[in-house]
Amino acid sequence: MRVVVGGGTGFVGTALTQLLRSRGHEVTHVSRYAGKDRISWDELSCSGLPRCDAAVNLAGENVLNPLRRWDYAFQREVVTSRVETTKTLAKAIAEAEQPPRAWVLVTGVGYYRPSLTTEYTEDSSGGDFDFFSRLVHTWELAAKIPGNITREVVVRSGVVLGKNGGAISQMLWPFRLGLGGPIGSGVQPFPWIHVQDLAGIVSHALETEGVRGVLNGVSPASPNTSNADFARALGSALGRPALLPLPTVVVRAVFGAERGIMLLEGQRVVPKRTLECGYHFTFPDLPVALRDIVS
């Protein structure tokens, strides 16, 4: 299978590329600059989609970059890096002489409204209550292709955990020094997934003809994991205490009130359709996932 991956040079893209190539698939990345096994977004816009069997978009500016102030300019970057790249790939697919058989977009569980009690499956409503939910809604609409020329799948990802990036990369040193702990109250749900499972779900969606529509990219244990549970499990995996909470006021000061919601609130998301479509998680439990990451 030939697969074109937008934004495939980042943390998740690297894991997906390694998995796809290990299964014998060819991968071409779409990034800012052309190079070996990659084309630029400008080339894609001008010359169209290279001949391929499937396409994936993982592109998106890091929302929780603590070095960027949450102002209008950065918000536009966050939106453009997701929505416009998706539109570009969707347009290229629609105009291709031989459209790919499958088209997968990875978005986020920010589509669902934060709640301590409500459980969300892929059929639950959302996408209309704050900046991030509306972003996901617009992002997913941008992926729509007229007619049935290709099979479309959306994977709504939780917090991605892995060795070489993602949320863990910013947490390890404080936890290793015994300075880690829950964020805010710690009672908020913590929807998480190991990067190998997120890559696995995307690969499963590409390879399995019957899979289409929305899949929740979270671990089966995710609905019962709070932020405090995660902090304790990470501390345990490192052999360190996890007793020092990061105060709400500090989170809001660093990230801003609107962006801070992503850390201070959460959703109980269930991968119902993901399991029903036959995907088997490599890391369904948090302690095992964290031991793999910190080993």
Rank of each mutant, 00 (worst) to 15 (best):
R151S: 11
L105T: 14
G162V: 01
V109C: 15
G147H: 09
S169A: 14
W103V: 06
A167K: 03
S124I: 10
G108W: 01
E140R: 08
E152R: 13
L105R: 00
R156C: 02
Q98C: 13
A102C: 05
I145F: 05
G165R: 00
P174S: 04
D123T: 14
A102N: 06
W103L: 07
E119G: 08
V136C: 12
G147A: 11
P146Y: 06
K144V: 14
R151E: 08
S133A: 15
V106H: 02
P100F: 06
F131H: 13
W139T: 02
G110P: 10
S133W: 05
R101D: 08
K144D: 12
S169M: 04
T121D: 14
I149G: 08
E122F: 12
D123V: 10
V160L: 01
P146V: 03
G158M: 02
S125N: 14
Q170L: 06
F129P: 12
G127E: 14
A167S: 12
E122A: 13
T150G: 05
G165D: 06
V136L: 02
Q98K: 09
G165T: 03
S125C: 10
P174I: 00
V109L: 08
L105N: 12
P99L: 04
V154W: 03
K144R: 14
S157A: 15
L105H: 06
G108L: 05
S169H: 09
F129D: 10
T121I: 11
V153K: 06
V106P: 06
L116W: 12
W139C: 06
G166S: 03
R156G: 04
R151P: 07
D123L: 14
Y112M: 08
G108Q: 06
S169V: 04
G162Q: 01
P99T: 05
F129Y: 14
P114V: 13
T117P: 11
P100M: 05
W173I: 10
D123G: 13
K144M: 13
L161A: 00
G108E: 01
T117A: 14
P114E: 11
W173V: 10
E119K: 15
V155N: 05
V155C: 06
D130Y: 09
V104G: 06
